[in-house]
Design a protein around this nucleic acid. Structure first.
Lengths: 167, 167
DNA sequence: CAGTCATACTTGAAACTTCAAGCACTACCT
DNA sequence: AGGTAGTGCTTGAAGTTTCAAGTATGACTG
């Protein structure tokens, strides 16, 4: 007993636990909600929709696989499978990268852009209805700040990642 | 032009978009992070851990399937598969419900309770480190309020669900 | 320029989730 | 009682994600 070494775990307080559970429930419900909405209206899961959005905003509607994975915060493997499916549906096509023979570009097709344009209004409406329309401007701002902190804390060592001379 | 009928979709403002993307990234990163932590330390995904927690807190370490599904905000189907796996691992066992022959109780086994006890400290530490330790008390409070609003807005018509006489 | 290591991406299998049935039992209605 | 609808849970198949390799190319080193 006296030699017990392991740090006494700092359990969550009741308030923290309450917040944490509500967080889990809310994020789960929201993600499910959007997933179903998109599956119903556009025949694709939320993540796949997000990929189309990213591509749609990229310079020539194209992005290197790794870059896309980084932006979407998913693994390259997951992206590979996802793009394979999107490709099969004709929303996206691949192209070898000219400068680096290892590289691949994912490119949003015309057809993909159409699907995106059709799905977007409904999706935005769903996000509004479930989130923004229910929050005060202060809450929206606060949510943004909080999520920024969390995201930055979990970024896989992004700090100076494009400054390779700093280790 | 004059006869255009469809409502012009209310797109997200730049600020809203910023908040939304950060939200998506943060929630994705956090869930992945916890999933990996639990997978590594306890050999089970986050959701399965959450099920054990719920069972552990229930009166006699047992809960009707539907009740558990409701608390965990998942479908009965998903729960069925999940419990099947947990059962195979020996963390949970099933038992017929005495009062309703259709019903099943999921019960946390001794072994399951041990696994839970072993995994909990690490998990709590991860949650702290990724979330609570980074937020001010005001932010924590705010996050709780915001998530409560979102969760309640998406609850599948829970309002008065246990007051059947009100329709 | 051979050797070594890192990078870019893919692949197949296993694990997980979803969806649409399906089975068994209960509740209600006449 | 018999019929009908509803509830509780499970199942199998299809789709998605993860994990651990695997292939191919680039980059650096002596």
């Amino acid at each position: 007993m006296a030699t017990k070494h392991e740090d006494e775990p700092r359990w969550l307080t009741d308030e923290e636990q309450q917040v944490w559970r509500t967080y889990l429930q809310a994020t789960m419900l929201l993600d499910d909600h959007l997933d179903r909405q998109l599956q119903r209206d556009a025949k694709l899961p939320h993540l796949y929709y997000a990929l189309l959005v990213q591509l749609g905003e990229a310079p020539r509607r194209r992005l290197r696989m790794t870059e896309l994975a980084k932006q979407a915060k998913i693994t390259r493997s997951r992206l590979s499978h996802a793009v394979a499916r999107l490709e099969k549906n004709g929303w996206v096509r691949r192209e070898d990268c000219p400068s680096d023979k290892r590289g691949q570009n994912a490119i949003l097709t015309e057809r993909g852009a159409e699907v995106l344009a059709e799905a977007a209004p409904g999706h935005v409406a769903a996000v509004r209805q479930a989130l923004f329309d229910r929050l005060t401007p202060e809450q929206q701002k606060s949510l943004g700040e909080i999520m920024k902190i969390v995201a930055e804390g979990l970024q896989p060592c992004e700090a100076g990642a494009d400054l390779p001379w700093l280790r």
